[in-house]
Design a protein around this nucleic acid. Structure first.
Length: 458
RNA sequence: GGCGCCUUGGCGGAGUGGCUACGCAGCGGCCUGCAAAGCCGCGUACGCCGGUUCGAUUCCGGCAGGCGCCUCCA
């Protein structure tokens, strides 16, 4: 079990992940608001945290990953209204789409995926505690958090409270004691078709409170890592932190971990964050269908999680080409028998050290390629076994998937005919047969052991 | 305007006070009937200007450009 260090947004420093008595490591990562299908940018935190969980488990920790879904908010009301369906139905549909898209990545599911609408009890309870301790107040059926009453407000996002604005929607301004205060509970408005009872009347939770409540419910207080996209640092995580600490007088999480944005370009312009409002999104489902899950994952692990990552379809194709090199290595040849070679073990250590050092997947990937190159030059005992093991930590275990021998008789017949033509040195005929196989999706490789068929692009 | 981050070879993308990141693409060679896969080799990358240093892409300052957040946002 090596020490795993992660950059903490609050302190600005790398900090060791602290496990509980039984090795437990609680991780809470903010998932998407389910008002539309998710794009590559939304997939980044999903992949990063799912892989971090794998790595921690690999190192002997007992990680528990919670990824929430925000299934009630203004955008959902809006989208549902446009489609003429109930907001609950719309949210449900989008949740199903999200689950299908992330399932298609083949990384498994988080340990828990709580929804805001299914956590109303704890949410109301937390708000009541905040009201009781004077950190929150009711106004016109809304409940607001008293930002000025929380001394360290702004520390996570390194902001001066006097220089910020919560920008609540129209109408709330006159209800708030202070313009910085933000909503914990929102009274039901005309046209809103979902609402829950509360001590302050019918309404629904504000955006930030749900995460404070769900995280505490499922992981307790002071859990190891709270994460999400860098765009959530303010106001979302700042507010979560304030709510929980104000109510419980204990920190919510020990490390705040944020991933950088996926950037996209439109029409040769400058890079910009991928976002629906910008109109430059590339949907996750679409990317997986067009390039495969391994290409999407390969693209995402090629950059350090904290850095912005430049997206393009060419980048997905490049990831696929990268994957191909590893897949070729695994399907050609076999390791010599014996204990893993020293060079192999050294590469493995370097790979794991890279992940332990602020989850540096590109550095880990470089070690993986180094190992492949080493073993290509000179067969090394244990090389393929280690490559296969490490691929799993990057979510690329599919590259090691054996057999693709779904060969049909037609292909076998053509290959045999080509072999006969070659034996007769009728190369025009042989090349013609190779082209035919190509049309069927097969690539022909002449090796010392004879001709082999390999699936194109695989 | 405030806060933070970034600027590395054709592209993507790590990293380091002096030692090949890595990958993709390209070029040359080997292998091959020709290919594919693979192997060998190549192009001598660190925005600009100062400073610290024996030595800076790596530290400090300034400048320029870009990005993110400050409003729903992974």
């Amino acid at each position: 079990m090596r020490e795993v260090r992660i950059r903490d947004t609050l302190s600005g420093e790398e900090r060791a992940v602290e496990a509980g008595p039984g090795g437990e490591v609680g991780i809470y990562a903010c998932g998407p608001t389910t008002y539309g299908p998710i794009h590559i940018g939304n997939a980044r935190p999903y992949v990063v945290f799912m892989l971090l969980r794998r790595f921690l488990a690999h190192e002997g920790y007992r990680p528990k990953l919670v990824v929430n879904l925000t299934d009630v908010n203004d955008k959902i009301y809006e989208a549902a209204r446009e489609r003429g369906v109930s907001s609950a139905a719309h949210a449900e549909e989008m949740v199903a789409g999200y689950v299908a898209d992330t399932d298609a990545l083949g990384l498994g599911r988080p340990d828990a995926e709580p929804k805001a609408t299914e956590t109303i009890g704890p949410i109301v309870g937390l708000i009541e505690d905040l009201v009781a301790t004077g950190h929150a107040y009711e106004a016109g059926g809304d409940v607001y958090f008293r930002v000025r009453g929380f001394a360290s407000y702004g520390e996570l996002s390194n902001r001066d409270p006097d220089a910020m604005d919560q920008g609540e929607e129209a109408g709330s301004a006159e209800l708030k004691e202070d313009r910085l205060d933000f909503a914990l509970w929102k009274a039901r408005k005309p046209g809103e078709d979902t609402a829950w009872p509360s001590p302050w009347g019918e309404g629904r939770p504000g955006w930030h409170i749900e995460c404070s409540a769900m995280a505490e419910e499922l992981l307790g207080l002071g859990f190891a890592i709270h994460g999400g996209g860098a765009d959530l640092v303010f106001p979302h995580h700042e507010n979560e932190r304030a709510q929980t600490e104000a109510a419980r007088e204990r920190p919510l999480a020990r490390i705040w971990m944020h991933n950088g944005m996926v950037e996209a370009r439109r029409g040769g312009g400058d890079a910009e964050k991928m976002a629906k409002s910008v109109g430059n999104v590339f949907l996750l489902g679409e990317a997986i269908r067009a390039h495969g899950a391994a290409a999407v994952i390969g693209f995402l692990v090629a950059g350090h999680y904290r850095q912005p990552l430049a997206f393009s379809e060419a980048a997905l194709e490049e990831a696929a080409a990268r994957n191909r090199r590893i897949r070729e290595f695994l399907r050609e040849g076999a390791d010599p028998p014996g204990e893993a070679d020293t060079a192999v073990r050294r590469r493995r250590e370097a790979f794991l050290d890279a992940l332990a050092d602020d989850f540096n997947t590109p550095r880990a990937l470089a070690e993986l390629f180094g190992l492949v190159a080493d073993a290509r030059r000179e067969p090394l005992p244990g090389a393929r076994a280690v490559v296969t093991e490490l691929l799993g930590l990057l979510g690329l275990e599919s590259l090691a998937a054996a057999g693709e021998d779904d060969r049909d008789e037609e292909a076998d017949r053509l290959l045999a005919a080509r072999e006969r033509a070659r034996a007769e040195r009728d190369f025009d005929r042989a090349d013609e047969l190779r082209d035919r196989l190509g049309e069927l999706g097969w690539e022909v490789r002449d090796t010392a052991e004879g001709a082999r068929l390999v699936r194109r692009g695989g």
